[in-house]
């Protein structure tokens, strides 16, 4: 029995000393280089695109890992409870700058950081309590909110006669709440009156789309999970009534919406990197940037079904033009 006890002690001492050594060696060698930490909640294609472009931009602007900065990367791997742990762990290393991707990560970092913070890919920085008004000293970043003004402009370019736009959305969803605020702000400028159709479950989509279709020139679905699940019903109504159905994300265009403007994630990453470099060089009170480089997705098959001709110049500028509808 005693042997096991010694074995246990040896094992624990070994584990502790190895991890201690790892920590010590990592922390000590590049002690002179200022640390830039990049923390994120999880990996998925969109967030990875943002992070890759952000890191590339840091390098392009002369901040290179191991040369004049030390990059520390952390990823919670989707584990929510690791978020505060990562934020505290990074803060304890006294970095010069923390770049936090995703809303929860940015909130946790803001809570503990004593250095400048740049957030990336946060949909609604003001709503998330990250940013109140202009010039917040030590915190800035980028928003990946769908550019709703450009969305409305695209609708006008494809069908200039639109004056009444029916919007399908679930008022219980955060992104839709944000979308409606934005749409209500921009629609009057473009001579568009919104007709709101609220949907509580995906099963309501057909009925609500039907009731809207008679009163409007075009339909729009915001980035709304409830409506997205029932999109086939909306496509069916739009095809029957021969009015165009627009969306705000590329996935819905694949499923039969006619067109969408989606946030350009590579540009969000580059913008985040640029803000980070400015912050790193001591600038303060920078306003946050909304997603600029937008991507246009079109579906020609849907256009046929909805008897709408997409102008050639729009097609020429599109990021992707689809010719069929996925089931």
């Amino acid at each position: 029995m005693k042997n096991y006890k010694y074995f246990a002690l040896v094992a624990i001492v070994a584990v502790l000393s190895v991890s201690g050594y790892l920590l010590y060696s990592k922390k000590n060698i590049p002690a002179q280089l200022p640390i830039i930490a990049v923390v994120t909640l999880q990996s998925h294609p969109i967030l990875d695109t943002v992070q890759e472009n952000l890191l590339a931009d840091l390098k392009n602007e002369g901040l290179e890992d191991g040369k004049n900065i030390q990059l520390v990367l952390r990823n919670a791997n989707g584990q929510m409870q690791a978020v505060p742990t990562i934020a505290n762990e990074i803060a304890s290393q006294n970095p010069r700058l923390i770049i936090a991707i995703t809303t929860p990560m940015a909130q946790a970092v803001k809570k503990v950081a004593k250095c400048p913070v740049v957030f990336g890919a946060v949909t609604d920085p003001e709503g998330a309590g990250l940013f109140e008004g202009e010039g917040q000293g030590n915190i800035t970043g980028t928003s990946d909110a769908v550019p709703y003004d450009q969305q409305l402009r695209l609708i006008k370019r494809i069908k200039p006669g639109v004056t009444r736009l029916g919007v399908l959305f679930n008022p219980g969803e955060a992104s839709s709440k944000f979308a409606m605020t934005e749409l209500r702000k921009f629609a009057p400028e473009m001579g568009i009156a919104l007709v709101e159709g609220s949907v509580n479950t995906s099963g309501d989509v057909y009925a609500v789309a039907q009731s809207l279709a008679g009163k409007v020139d075009a339909l729009l679905i915001s980035t709304d999970n409830t409506v997205a699940v029932g999109i086939a019903a909306a496509v069916k109504v739009a095809s029957e009534k021969k009015i165009p159905l627009f969306a705000c994300d590329s996935g819905s265009v694949e499923k039969g919406a006619l067109a969408a403007v989606s946030a350009g994630y590579p540009q969000v990453g580059i913008d985040t990197g640029r803000l980070a470099v400015k912050m790193f060089n001591g600038e303060k009170n920078l306003p946050f940037l909304k997603a600029q480089g937008s991507e246009i997705y079109l579906n020609q098959r849907a256009a046929e079904m909805m008897s709408t001709k997409i102008p050639d110049d729009v097609v020429a500028n599109a990021t992707k033009v689809l010719t069929e509808i996925k089931d």
Binding site: S19, L22, L23, K26, Q42, S43, V72, L73, R74, N75, A76, N77, Q79, A82, T85, I86, N88, E89
Partner: peptide, 19 residues
């Protein structure tokens, strides 16, 4: 458990290896 998790994160374990 939380100390071990913090140690693992601090040692820079890749997200994929953490669990």
């Amino acid at each position: 458990y939380q100390t071990i998790l913090a140690l693992a994160i601090g040692a820079g374990l890749a997200a994929t290896d953490l669990r």
